[in-house]
Amino acid sequence: MLLVVREHGLLGIMKIEITPELIIRYHQGQCTQEEKEVVVEWLLDPEAEENLHLPDGEPELIHKFEIWQGISNGVKKNARRGRLIRVLKKELYAIRPITRLAIAATVLLFVGSLAAGIYYPTRSVDGQVSLDNLAGNTAKNGKLASLSFTLSPQSKAEANIPAWTRAVQIRFCGSLQVTNNSENDVELVFSSGCKKTNYTLQKVTVAKGKSYLATHYRMETDEIIVVDKARILDLPPPLVSQFIKDFKLI
Protein backbone atom coordinates (compact mmCIF):
# COMPACT_ATOMS: atom_id res chain seq x y z
CA MET A 1 0.00 0.00 0.00
CA LEU A 2 0.59 3.06 0.80
CA LEU A 3 3.04 5.10 -0.87
CA VAL A 4 2.67 7.32 2.11
CA VAL A 5 3.57 4.89 4.58
CA ARG A 6 6.27 2.91 3.09
CA GLU A 7 8.09 6.15 3.19
CA HIS A 8 9.02 5.16 6.61
CA GLY A 9 10.99 2.20 5.53
CA LEU A 10 14.03 4.32 4.89
CA LEU A 11 15.36 4.01 8.38
CA GLY A 12 18.13 1.75 7.17
CA ILE A 13 19.77 4.38 5.02
CA MET A 14 22.54 6.37 6.59
CA LYS A 15 25.56 8.37 5.69
CA ILE A 16 28.83 7.97 7.58
CA GLU A 17 31.59 10.50 7.05
CA ILE A 18 35.17 9.32 6.75
CA THR A 19 37.21 11.16 9.35
CA PRO A 20 40.62 10.53 10.94
CA GLU A 21 38.80 9.79 14.20
CA LEU A 22 36.72 7.14 12.46
CA ILE A 23 39.84 5.49 11.03
CA ILE A 24 41.48 5.46 14.46
CA ARG A 25 38.39 3.96 16.04
CA TYR A 26 38.33 1.41 13.26
CA HIS A 27 41.92 0.45 13.99
CA GLN A 28 41.07 0.15 17.68
CA GLY A 29 38.17 -2.12 16.87
CA GLN A 30 35.61 0.31 18.25
CA CYS A 31 33.56 0.82 15.09
CA THR A 32 30.02 -0.42 14.53
CA GLN A 33 29.45 -2.89 11.74
CA GLU A 34 28.11 -0.10 9.49
CA GLU A 35 31.12 2.10 10.17
CA LYS A 36 33.46 -0.82 9.48
CA GLU A 37 31.93 -1.40 6.09
CA VAL A 38 32.00 2.26 5.13
CA VAL A 39 35.69 2.45 6.07
CA VAL A 40 36.40 -0.63 4.04
CA GLU A 41 34.48 0.73 1.09
CA TRP A 42 36.43 3.96 1.34
CA LEU A 43 39.76 2.20 1.61
CA LEU A 44 39.12 0.15 -1.47
CA ASP A 45 37.63 2.95 -3.51
CA PRO A 46 40.31 4.26 -5.90
CA GLU A 47 38.44 7.53 -6.30
CA ALA A 48 38.67 8.22 -2.61
CA GLU A 49 42.44 8.43 -2.71
CA GLU A 50 42.41 12.16 -3.20
CA ASN A 51 40.89 12.54 0.23
CA LEU A 52 43.90 11.03 1.98
CA HIS A 53 45.79 14.34 1.88
CA LEU A 54 49.27 12.90 1.50
CA PRO A 55 52.31 15.16 1.45
CA ASP A 56 53.19 16.53 -1.98
CA GLY A 57 54.77 13.92 -4.17
CA GLU A 58 53.73 11.02 -1.97
CA PRO A 59 52.96 8.15 -4.39
CA GLU A 60 50.23 6.71 -2.18
CA LEU A 61 48.51 4.70 -4.87
CA ILE A 62 51.74 3.07 -5.88
CA HIS A 63 52.57 2.29 -2.27
CA LYS A 64 49.23 0.75 -1.69
CA PHE A 65 49.42 -1.29 -4.86
CA GLU A 66 52.91 -2.54 -4.00
CA ILE A 67 51.83 -3.53 -0.53
CA TRP A 68 48.86 -5.45 -1.87
CA GLN A 69 51.05 -7.02 -4.47
CA GLY A 70 53.56 -7.90 -1.80
CA ILE A 71 50.92 -9.50 0.38
CA SER A 72 49.60 -11.47 -2.54
CA ASN A 73 53.04 -12.70 -3.54
CA GLY A 74 53.97 -13.35 0.08
CA VAL A 75 50.98 -15.59 0.58
CA LYS A 76 51.93 -17.61 -2.47
CA LYS A 77 55.69 -17.71 -2.04
CA ASN A 78 57.09 -18.02 1.43
CA ALA A 79 60.60 -17.75 0.09
CA ARG A 80 60.09 -14.10 -0.70
CA ARG A 81 58.69 -13.29 2.72
CA GLY A 82 61.80 -11.62 4.09
CA ARG A 83 62.06 -9.22 1.21
CA LEU A 84 58.35 -8.51 1.38
CA ILE A 85 58.54 -7.54 5.03
CA ARG A 86 61.46 -5.23 4.31
CA VAL A 87 59.49 -3.61 1.48
CA LEU A 88 56.45 -3.28 3.66
CA LYS A 89 58.37 -1.69 6.49
CA LYS A 90 60.13 0.73 4.19
CA GLU A 91 56.94 1.73 2.48
CA LEU A 92 54.89 1.99 5.61
CA TYR A 93 57.36 4.17 7.46
CA ALA A 94 57.55 6.48 4.47
CA ILE A 95 53.92 7.50 4.72
CA ARG A 96 51.86 9.49 7.19
CA PRO A 97 50.54 7.84 10.37
CA ILE A 98 46.94 8.26 9.37
CA THR A 99 47.51 6.55 6.06
CA ARG A 100 49.48 3.88 7.86
CA LEU A 101 46.51 3.28 10.08
CA ALA A 102 44.29 3.02 7.06
CA ILE A 103 46.56 0.50 5.38
CA ALA A 104 46.86 -1.51 8.57
CA ALA A 105 43.12 -1.54 8.80
CA THR A 106 42.90 -2.72 5.20
CA VAL A 107 45.23 -5.60 5.89
CA LEU A 108 43.32 -6.55 9.01
CA LEU A 109 40.11 -6.39 7.11
CA PHE A 110 41.47 -8.53 4.30
CA VAL A 111 42.41 -11.26 6.76
CA GLY A 112 39.15 -10.82 8.62
CA SER A 113 37.06 -11.06 5.50
CA LEU A 114 38.82 -14.25 4.49
CA ALA A 115 37.85 -15.65 7.86
CA ALA A 116 34.32 -14.34 7.41
CA GLY A 117 34.16 -15.99 4.02
CA ILE A 118 34.95 -19.29 5.69
CA TYR A 119 32.54 -18.63 8.51
CA TYR A 120 29.72 -17.60 6.19
CA PRO A 121 30.23 -19.88 3.24
CA THR A 122 26.76 -19.37 1.81
CA ARG A 123 25.30 -16.15 0.51
CA SER A 124 21.98 -15.28 -0.98
CA VAL A 125 23.60 -13.48 -3.91
CA ASP A 126 26.96 -13.96 -5.53
CA GLY A 127 29.03 -12.97 -8.52
CA GLN A 128 28.99 -9.78 -10.51
CA VAL A 129 27.07 -8.12 -13.30
CA SER A 130 27.70 -5.22 -15.63
CA LEU A 131 24.88 -3.42 -17.43
CA ASP A 132 25.13 -0.68 -20.03
CA ASN A 133 22.05 1.18 -21.24
CA LEU A 134 23.75 4.45 -22.14
CA ALA A 135 22.44 4.30 -25.70
CA GLY A 136 19.07 2.79 -24.82
CA ASN A 137 15.66 4.38 -25.13
CA THR A 138 13.85 1.95 -22.88
CA ALA A 139 14.66 0.31 -19.57
CA LYS A 140 17.03 -2.65 -19.60
CA ASN A 141 16.92 -5.63 -17.24
CA GLY A 142 19.68 -7.68 -15.66
CA LYS A 143 20.27 -10.15 -12.84
CA LEU A 144 22.84 -10.89 -10.21
CA ALA A 145 21.86 -14.15 -8.56
CA SER A 146 18.64 -13.34 -6.72
CA LEU A 147 18.81 -9.62 -7.33
CA SER A 148 17.13 -8.21 -10.41
CA PHE A 149 18.03 -4.86 -11.90
CA THR A 150 16.16 -2.50 -14.17
CA LEU A 151 18.28 0.21 -15.68
CA SER A 152 16.84 3.50 -16.98
CA PRO A 153 17.79 4.76 -20.44
CA GLN A 154 21.12 6.61 -20.51
CA SER A 155 22.31 4.67 -17.48
CA LYS A 156 24.97 2.10 -16.63
CA ALA A 157 25.67 -0.03 -13.59
CA GLU A 158 28.07 -2.59 -12.18
CA ALA A 159 27.22 -4.77 -9.20
CA ASN A 160 29.39 -7.21 -7.30
CA ILE A 161 29.94 -8.69 -3.89
CA PRO A 162 33.53 -8.35 -2.69
CA ALA A 163 34.95 -11.17 -0.60
CA TRP A 164 35.28 -8.95 2.45
CA THR A 165 31.63 -8.11 2.88
CA ARG A 166 28.17 -9.50 2.33
CA ALA A 167 26.96 -6.13 1.09
CA VAL A 168 26.28 -5.82 -2.62
CA GLN A 169 28.27 -2.97 -4.12
CA ILE A 170 26.40 -1.14 -6.88
CA ARG A 171 28.26 1.44 -8.85
CA PHE A 172 26.04 3.28 -11.29
CA CYS A 173 25.40 6.37 -13.33
CA GLY A 174 21.85 7.44 -14.12
CA SER A 175 18.97 5.59 -12.44
CA LEU A 176 18.09 2.02 -11.62
CA GLN A 177 15.72 -0.21 -9.71
CA VAL A 178 16.93 -3.18 -7.65
CA THR A 179 14.62 -5.96 -6.45
CA ASN A 180 15.58 -8.51 -3.82
CA ASN A 181 14.13 -11.86 -4.90
CA SER A 182 16.03 -13.87 -2.29
CA GLU A 183 14.66 -15.19 0.99
CA ASN A 184 16.97 -12.97 3.04
CA ASP A 185 17.55 -9.30 3.62
CA VAL A 186 20.27 -7.91 1.36
CA GLU A 187 22.42 -4.91 2.06
CA LEU A 188 23.08 -2.62 -0.90
CA VAL A 189 25.79 0.04 -1.08
CA PHE A 190 25.22 2.53 -3.88
CA SER A 191 28.09 4.60 -5.23
CA SER A 192 28.28 6.82 -8.27
CA GLY A 193 29.94 5.63 -11.44
CA CYS A 194 29.56 9.02 -13.10
CA LYS A 195 32.53 11.15 -14.01
CA LYS A 196 31.95 13.42 -11.03
CA THR A 197 33.25 11.79 -7.89
CA ASN A 198 31.86 13.94 -5.09
CA TYR A 199 28.77 11.81 -4.52
CA THR A 200 28.38 10.25 -1.10
CA LEU A 201 27.56 6.59 -0.64
CA GLN A 202 24.05 5.50 0.21
CA LYS A 203 23.38 2.25 2.00
CA VAL A 204 20.10 0.45 2.40
CA THR A 205 18.96 -2.91 3.67
CA VAL A 206 16.38 -4.40 1.34
CA ALA A 207 13.95 -6.93 2.76
CA LYS A 208 13.01 -9.93 0.68
CA GLY A 209 10.65 -9.12 -2.13
CA LYS A 210 11.17 -5.39 -1.90
CA SER A 211 12.47 -3.00 -4.52
CA TYR A 212 14.49 0.18 -4.18
CA LEU A 213 15.11 2.99 -6.63
CA ALA A 214 18.41 4.83 -6.86
CA THR A 215 19.22 7.94 -8.84
CA HIS A 216 21.43 10.99 -8.96
CA TYR A 217 20.16 14.39 -7.97
CA ARG A 218 21.42 17.84 -7.21
CA MET A 219 19.57 20.14 -4.85
CA GLU A 220 22.46 22.03 -3.29
CA THR A 221 25.10 19.34 -3.70
CA ASP A 222 25.45 16.27 -5.86
CA GLU A 223 23.91 13.28 -4.13
CA ILE A 224 22.58 9.80 -4.62
CA ILE A 225 18.93 9.34 -3.67
CA VAL A 226 17.70 5.90 -2.67
CA VAL A 227 14.04 5.29 -1.89
CA ASP A 228 11.74 2.35 -1.35
CA LYS A 229 9.84 1.76 -4.60
CA ALA A 230 6.60 1.94 -2.62
CA ARG A 231 7.48 5.47 -1.57
CA ILE A 232 8.18 6.79 -5.02
CA LEU A 233 6.37 10.01 -4.17
CA ASP A 234 9.27 10.83 -1.87
CA LEU A 235 11.25 11.58 -5.00
CA PRO A 236 11.39 15.15 -6.27
CA PRO A 237 8.48 15.72 -8.72
CA PRO A 238 10.53 15.73 -11.95
CA LEU A 239 11.99 12.36 -11.02
CA VAL A 240 8.63 10.87 -10.09
CA SER A 241 7.44 11.31 -13.67
CA GLN A 242 10.65 9.83 -15.01
CA PHE A 243 10.52 6.79 -12.76
CA ILE A 244 6.86 6.13 -13.45
CA LYS A 245 7.71 6.15 -17.16
CA ASP A 246 10.92 4.11 -16.94
CA PHE A 247 9.79 1.50 -14.46
CA LYS A 248 6.02 1.56 -15.01
CA LEU A 249 5.38 2.37 -11.36
CA ILE A 250 2.35 3.31 -9.29
Binding site: E7, L10, I13, M14, K15, Q202, Y217, M219, E220, T221, E223, I225, V226, V227, D234, P236
Partner: peptide, 9 residues
Amino acid sequence: VNRYMDYLE
Protein backbone atom coordinates in the same frame (compact mmCIF):
# COMPACT_ATOMS: atom_id res chain seq x y z
CA VAL B 1 18.84 20.56 5.11
CA ASN B 2 21.99 20.23 3.04
CA ARG B 3 20.82 17.66 0.54
CA TYR B 4 17.58 16.14 -0.63
CA MET B 5 18.01 12.95 1.41
CA ASP B 6 17.85 15.07 4.57
CA TYR B 7 14.16 15.61 3.84
CA LEU B 8 13.65 11.85 3.99
CA GLU B 9 16.00 10.85 6.79
